[in-house]
Design a protein around this nucleic acid. Structure first.
Lengths: 338, 338
DNA sequence: TAAATTTACGCAATCGATTGTTTTTTTTAA
DNA sequence: TTAAAAAAAACAATCGATTGCGTAAATTTA
């Protein structure tokens, strides 16, 4: 059916091994021979059988992505960045979603391991507290890059943003706009991203000598639109409602905006709001949502670069590096009082 | 390193072929033997080498997805549906994006072909007019499922919505709300989706004896936010501006809403608007956007089902079927006058 | 010109599973 | 009890590329 190196070998009167080496630019094959073989291969429409190659060489030119849900602005943009970068380097991308379940994350990790991916890019599920299921990868020398939602302890590559500092800035911004009682929608605290955003929030308050009121910190499991509404309702019922909200994501912040508008509460005059992520919707909603911009696409590209460098330069096996990307605070109407 | 059927064979005193057949529940192996082997395999932590299996059997348990851009609500939800369904059936998902370029679509299609995917799910790029690059798949008996943006001529599976009828309904809805001059943001006409939405729009006008004014039909290349604004500006400058807009997607419709609000034009009183897709943002923007809901996730699941059925039931090779899924018109504030 | 290198290429095993064919074992029928 | 039929398992080739090792040819050195 499709043509193999054996067909080429017969046609050109070389041995299959020479064909193979020539196609891979092996130095032990003469230049002319190499060029001839490559030309002939192209002419005859030779397409390497990647299964055979990876069976023998135990390398797959495929990387695995393991994320919570494709179907979210940050994640899909991240994947887009990974895919574009991988494609450029001739890598395929296997994708799998945990739907934020720990169990599915384990299952999918194992499947990807079986697929002999040559690298894995992971953003942890909401439920994940233990990351032992990734040890098998590093044990086998397969690089694992954690992105955004990363474990604290696991020794590996990590591509993140400075959640603490971003949150600090965001909170400080609200303070600068005159907010005295700033609420915080916090996410699952075992995840680095939400934990650090909370820390940044707390420290910004401290730094500006604003007392911390635990009633103003609302812990939300998934930071969904529904939860955002419930949280906002709760805040409004307080004896002393807040005059600012820093939400750990945009979804909950948008929900707050929607609900507050229904309740005829002015934004940002009565309550100023800032979110996190810069989802597309943030700039369109009225009032537009101030937020922290996450370089999702770039994080994807960079994650792939790490894997590529790791696989080309085997000397760096076992290295653990943390890459922190810049965010930017985007001030829009929802928090701009002056 | 990892354990193989040969290890199992040695351990259990069977031949590798028996091991292989037992693991695949082949009927020529006795029940007890099969069970014993499977139990032992599990105990010893046997993981099949999929590369080896697919090299030999020429089947990969991997399907390919070829879409324009991951990073869009409809597409990412579609993928999510495919991935969930595929995972359930033990399939892997290879993903690639054309970024709406014809050339990249061809390149990626070839890469996926080389990866020996056992099925391909495609949503065409904006630029694609010729679909010969998919013939190789069907020639090799690999099922191709086109989703949403499908070619007219290619003989294959297609999973679509009734664009014509949805557009007809959407336009009719505007008419029922009293609109007399309804504009249309049309997309690239060589794509079925936009072409048929335009037809539905035109026929709805005809059906209600509303004259067709070509000035009100704005052709947009990508239906982006920017283009939506430009189109809206153009419409407002007309001697007789429209009193309704049916946009072929939500992005452009949202842009129109944003711009019209800036211009102090009332929605829906002065201009009623309806979009297409039901992007998450549609329900959140103020006024909320009426639109046509697209069952993206379901389309993904169904697409995978087609592939699965095709690969399990080889008798249906070469079959071409078109599956039309239901949409629903979602009426929100942007078009509700009464 | 012979010996020593270097360069270019071929041989053959190998990766781990699948599968058509054959052999052995068991069951059934006569 | 024995032949025939059916069931269970083994043999061995195969998928298509990679790669360590060996050898012939070309080049350099003495």
């Amino acid at each position: 059916m499709s043509i193999t190196i054996y067909d080429l070998a017969k046609k050109l009167n070389y041995s299959p091994s020479t064909i193979s080496r020539a196609l891979n630019n092996h130095k032990s094959i003469g230049k002319k021979t190499t060029l001839n073989i490559q030309k002939a291969a192209k002419e005859m429409g030779y397409k390497p059988n990647t299964q055979a190659a990876s069976l023998r060489s135990k390398q797959s030119k495929t990387i695995g992505i393991l994320i919570s849900r494709i179907n979210r602005p940050f994640v899909s943009t991240l994947i887009s960045g990974i895919e574009d970068a991988a494609r450029k380097s001739g890598y395929n991308v296997l994708i799998s979603q945990s739907n934020d379940h720990y169990k599915d994350e384990i299952t999918n990790a194992n499947t990807l391991l079986q697929s002999r991916v040559s690298g894995l890019i992971v953003s942890l599920s909401m439920e994940t507290k233990n990351t032992d299921h990734f040890k098998e990868f590093t044990d086998q020398g397969i690089p694992v890059v954690f992105v955004d939602r990363v474990p604290l302890s696991f020794n590996s590559y990590k591509v993140i943003i400075d959640n603490y500092n971003s949150a600090f800035q965001a909170t400080q911004h609200l303070i600068e706009q005159g907010c005295k009682r700033i609420a915080h929608f916090a996410g699952s605290q075992h995840l680095n991203v939400y934990n650090q955003r909370r820390s940044g929030y707390l420290d910004a308050l401290k730094h500006h000598n604003i007392p911390i009121d635990k009633e103003l910190i609302i812990n939300l499991k998934s930071l969904s639109f529904e939860e955002g509404k419930i949280a906002t309702e709760k805040l409004l019922k307080l004896p002393l409602p807040p005059d600012g909200i820093f939400s750990a994501n945009d979804t909950a912040a948008l929900s707050a905006i929607t609900y507050l508008k229904e309740q005829q509460i002015r934004i940002p005059e009565d309550i100023a709001i800032i979110g996190f992520n810069d989802d597309p919707i943030a700039s369109i909603i009225e009032p537009s949502l101030s937020t922290v911009s996450h370089p999702a696409y770039k994080m994807g590209e960079l994650s792939f670069q790490r894997i590529l460098e790791h696989t080309t330069d085997r000397t760096i096996a076992g290295v653990s590096e943390i890459f922190v990307l810049d965010t930017s605070i985007i001030i829009r109407k929802s928090s701009k009082r002056y």
